Simulated assay, not measured.
Amino acid sequence: MLTRWRLCVRVLATGLLLLQDDAGSEEVNFHYTEGKRVVLYCEKSDQLWTKDSKPFSAINNSLAEITNTAGGYTKLKIRKLKPEDAGIYACGNTKFKIEVHEPRNLTAIRRELTVPWSKSAKLSCIFANKDDRRSSLFVRWYFRGKNEEKEIQVLPSKRYSIYWHKAKKQCTLIVRNVEKLDEGNYKCAGGPLDNLKEAEDIIHLNISGIAPQMQKGLPKILEKNEGDNVSLTCGASGFPPPTFTWFREQVMLDQGRELMLRNVTKADSGAFACVARNENGNATHTWKLSINVLNYEQEVLRESTVQPHAREESTTSGGTATVLQTSVWSFLLLVMALQL
């Protein structure tokens, strides 16, 4: 049973923080993981070490060593802690309470994950220790890309969310709308607050590509009049983003998402195809373009209907007057055409 401490704090030259009780004895509490090394210091070199009030000898522990330092201290070092090394070590009025816990096991639920481009990736790590009486557990996430040497910490943002399930001791990282740049190693590192990297594991995230897919509802037949401008757009998506190549009767015309034909004639009639390609495949869509040749009367009528009526508004002190002007020239052409 530990005694109640009064406010008296001293720091040794070794950096250990000693709390002193009302009787003048000092005690330090340590939590160690099995297999770790511990070094304890005593202010007086002529004092013997005890463990749980019984004399302690390094002869009984092949991994323990007791030496005197140049500063007049006695040093007790245990190179590799075992569960049986737990207890209260004392040297004079100085006491050290050592607790030894099993190595913490932070394990990835899946160490390799493949997610389609633009979807969400869910990465989870879980603490396997069933009995944990220590302070609260914490987990941090780190990312290192395929071609990067350094890792960066992943913090919550619009694309990243981190969830902690206390009952399951499970931490989950969600990466939204994944891209190729998100491919790489994600490390979950955690432990108690005083040792956040006590345990760790790595998850490798792969981003799978998507073959090009044509947009639904693209027209297959286009009818245009001679002299029109025709714009064809290749509506395809995929990952990596596809390239676009245009063909007419198996002859390559151009590259790019859009093909523009200006002032078309009857000779421009025919089949136009767009091929979208990436490393995962290709997709093709074909338009059949039909060009109508207008006769003289149709051309005049077309010009008269296309020509917009000009509207002119003038504002006076007495109000607003609107004057509608009609294209006289278009009207005369129509009359001449009808008389022929």
Rank of each mutant, 00 (worst) to 15 (best):
G92S: 06
F96W: 04
N263P: 05
S136T: 09
N292Y: 04
E223L: 07
A86P: 09
A337G: 14
P242W: 00
L193R: 14
P212N: 09
I162G: 05
L261P: 05
A283F: 05
I207N: 05
Q255I: 14
S317F: 13
G281W: 02
K158D: 15
G191Y: 02
I221R: 13
Q20Y: 11
R10C: 05
D254N: 15
A13R: 06
Q325D: 14
P219K: 10
K97A: 09
P103V: 04
N129Y: 03
P308D: 07
P83V: 09
A236I: 04
A211C: 08
S62V: 07
E226I: 05
V115A: 00
N225E: 13
V39P: 01
G92I: 01
Q298F: 07
C125R: 00
V11I: 15
R6I: 13
A90Q: 09
Q215P: 06
C274Q: 01
Q215C: 12
T69I: 08
I291V: 12
I78P: 10
L338K: 12
K150S: 14
N129G: 05
P156K: 03
T14W: 10
T286K: 12
N225T: 11
T114W: 03
T326P: 04
L333P: 04
V264T: 00
S157H: 10
A58Y: 01
V264K: 00
S231T: 15
L173Q: 00
A283W: 02
K220H: 13
L16Q: 14
M1Y: 10
V230W: 06
Y32I: 12
D52A: 01
V28Y: 09
K169T: 02
A23F: 08
D268T: 02
E299R: 15
L289M: 13
L106D: 03
